[in-house]
Simulated scan of single mutants.
Amino acid sequence: MSSVDVAMPGGSTSPVLLFPGGDRPLVMLWPGLGMGARYYRPIAEALAASGFPVAVGELRGQGASTAVAGKDQQWGYHDLASQDYPRSIRGARRALGLPEDHPTVLLTHSMGGQVGALFLARPEARELNVRGMMGVGSGSPYFRTFPNPERSRLHLGGYVMQGVSRVLGYWPDGRLDVTNYGRQSDVHLGEWARFGRSNRLSDLRGADMDYMAAMQDVRCPVLLTRFSDDTYCTVDSCRALAELVPAEVEEFPGTLGHNSWARHPDVVVDRFEAFVASL
């Protein structure tokens, strides 16, 4: 494993972890909210052993990213989809010695898949020869797709988190971080809260396109999966995201929940192999 630092707007850098493989499509893996890239090392190593070159990005402000959310440093869904995702793919390809048009498949977790759905709708995804996306635990935070008490927690908690981050200019880390998401941008968190209330990714700060319309036009294959005991991503939440970007929804039996599959990767690696073979 090695890494390459990718420059981001505002002077920050996001390291991308690199796992050289064979000549198969590049796997660009994106974490969930509050998750650092290093957590995904076991699944990245397993995929590399299967012949895939693998890169693991950081969501801005998380893990080893040098961005620090504050009143003067903000980002949202559009910034991640239009800047972080394409820059990281380009940086990974250069560092791995891959051609500029090397086929790429996204493997995403939770928030990484929400941003991934927006990225697939952008022209950069086509320019970068992105062939498809498989999400694990990647669904919509729409509160109506969850049973209680999670439904109430998402609905009411979204208002509280949005209010706190608006006052401070960011969602705090440390003792006040009851979510364990770490420090987060007020803009991103506010957009996530609105998404959770409406199941719409509209009115995104700085958006240069109609994402809701463009997502409906995505034609590359998208597979949204979840484990049967994942309380943070229900089947209905996957279906809600599939209403925005055309996707198949699939459930894995087992007890790997929302996060543990990344450390025990056999089930996901096998399904990913089959997904790539179908592209």
Rank of each mutant, 00 (worst) to 15 (best):
G113A: 11
G57M: 12
P265Y: 04
G34F: 01
G76H: 03
D270H: 06
G137I: 11
G163S: 11
W261H: 05
R151Q: 08
M215R: 03
W192S: 10
I43Q: 02
M215V: 05
G132T: 14
C238N: 14
G63M: 08
F227I: 08
V160I: 14
F146P: 02
Y40P: 00
F252M: 10
I89P: 01
T66G: 09
L176V: 09
M35A: 14
Y232D: 15
N148S: 14
R41I: 11
Y77H: 05
I43L: 11
G34E: 13
G91T: 05
S138E: 04
M134P: 04
G10V: 05
V130Q: 02
S165I: 04
R166F: 01
F119W: 02
L26A: 08
P147I: 11
R226L: 08
G158D: 09
V245F: 00
E45S: 15
F52N: 09
E273A: 12
F19D: 06
F146A: 06
H102Q: 12
S88G: 14
A213C: 07
T145L: 03
S14E: 02
A67R: 00
R175Y: 11
A240E: 05
P123N: 12
L244I: 12
P172H: 05
P9G: 11
M161T: 10
V130L: 12
L244K: 00
Y159C: 13
S260G: 06
V56S: 05
E273G: 09
G10N: 05
A64I: 06
G257I: 03
P265V: 14
G190P: 01
R239G: 05
R197I: 10
V136M: 11
M134W: 01
R24F: 02
V267F: 05
L244N: 05
T66R: 03
Y142N: 02
A64T: 08
P86Y: 02
A207S: 14
Q73Y: 14
G139C: 12
V235T: 15
I43E: 04
P246E: 07
G34A: 14
T145P: 01
V249Y: 02
R94V: 15
E273K: 08
A242D: 03
V6G: 06
E191F: 13
V4K: 00
L33G: 08
G116K: 04
D84L: 04
G182R: 01
L279A: 12
G76R: 07
L156H: 11
A69L: 01
R219P: 00
A274G: 14
D236F: 01
L80Y: 01
V164E: 03
V68E: 11
G157C: 06
D210C: 11
D186V: 12
S14L: 08
M209L: 15
F195C: 08
Q83E: 13
G196Q: 07
G196A: 13
T231V: 15
V130E: 01
